[in-house]
Design a protein around this nucleic acid. Structure first.
Lengths: 201, 201
DNA sequence: GTCTATAGGCAGATAGAC
DNA sequence: GTCTATCTGCCTATAGAC
């Protein structure tokens, strides 16, 4: 049984991940260094290497944690069980929240740098998008069956459109430091998929 | 009057830009180096510094040339003067062409790296998106007036949605090395804005 | 677990010969 | 214009003391 040390940092490992995550979301994987993280935490680069032997391992841990947290958020949305449309709205708010913290989606920025990432990180990035698209596709099928969501064509393609739109809108909105710009696009997207009291096109 | 030197490289400066452009579109601004370009062209890094004193100047020249080429393409689309809908379709094909060359949009990838770019490059990236959104907003207004384009809300927001969707779809499609994935999203987008023989929602 | 110290490499950049 | 040679700085990473 471990004894809690109440006055300590929760955990050095977690603090490293927090700092690195923020840095990657702001500056990209090639835009931050062990020195940046060490300076932020007031420890040395060598201490980082104790917790994460190399940058690839750190990167992989970042994606794993981020994806797990995202999966949890999706599960919470499902658990609340509002209509499919409301779940889609909640999904866009996950993105809004990230952008409001002046960050880009971790996997969105890693997608941009994909070719230069350590190969060990490649699959994890792809899996993040697979997870999102699978969740959205289920939501869309459900919503179409119940009438709260409306769309034409395949659910997979529609899910790809949703992810692409939100990632792209984040990317561009950050340039203008304008979260309202993102919100306008998200609202347009929601409107497009809103099946409640709409013409069926 | 200059004399053509038929057997020469068209121009070292242009060759540098071509090489650097391809590298940035594949690997990002922080993912390529003077050494990469020099190796590709069979010259030395010092020669590069003669043409572009620093990486910031090279980056700025890259965006200028890219934006000018894009503006030309937009002008050509306008000159052919098909319907607004056909112009929008032609616009999405500009993106398809980039993706088929296994590249990401230059300014899309620079947007992801925005925080780490030399400040001298910032305005040029933003201007690229301003240009695109202004062109699209005009197209949308025109199309709505003539009935070939249909959309709700402001033209500016709709233009932002189009740019966001296409940039984001490129970003994700490249992960899967799947141009069909991009095409599916582009087709869905076109369908959404198609005002010809459609319910007005 | 965290430190000091340092290795080895590559980055962007410059000087000066040709 | 392009070269060789070199500088300085930062990067990731490791060894070994505490």
């Amino acid at each position: 049984m471990t004894v809690a040390k109440a006055t300590d940092q929760p955990d050095t490992r977690a603090a490293i991940l927090d700092s690195a995550e923020r840095l990657v979301q702001a500056r990209g994987f090639n835009g931050f260094s062990y020195a940046n993280v060490a300076a932020e935490l007031g420890i040395t680069k060598a201490a980082l290497h104790y917790h994460f032997p190399g940058k690839a391992e750190l990167g992989d841990a970042l994606i794993s944690r981020y994806a797990a947290r995202f999966a949890e958020a999706l599960a919470l949305i499902d658990a609340a069980r509002p209509s499919a449309f409301d779940r889609l709205a909640a999904y866009t708010e996950l993105y809004s929240g990230v952008l409001e913290a002046q960050r880009m989606c971790l996997c969105g920025i890693l997608a941009a740098e994909y070719e230069t990432l350590p190969p060990a990180m490649h699959q994890a990035v792809v899996s993040f998008f697979d997870m999102n698209q699978a969740w959205l596709a289920r939501l869309l099928e459900d919503g179409r069956a119940r009438g709260t969501i409306r769309f034409t064509g395949g659910a997979k393609h529609a899910a790809q459109q949703i992810v692409g739109t939100l990632e792209g809108a984040m990317l561009v909105a950050r340039l203008y430091a304008d979260t309202a710009r993102f919100q306008a696009v998200a609202d347009r997207l929601l409107n497009e998929f809103d099946g409640r009291s709409r013409c069926t096109g």
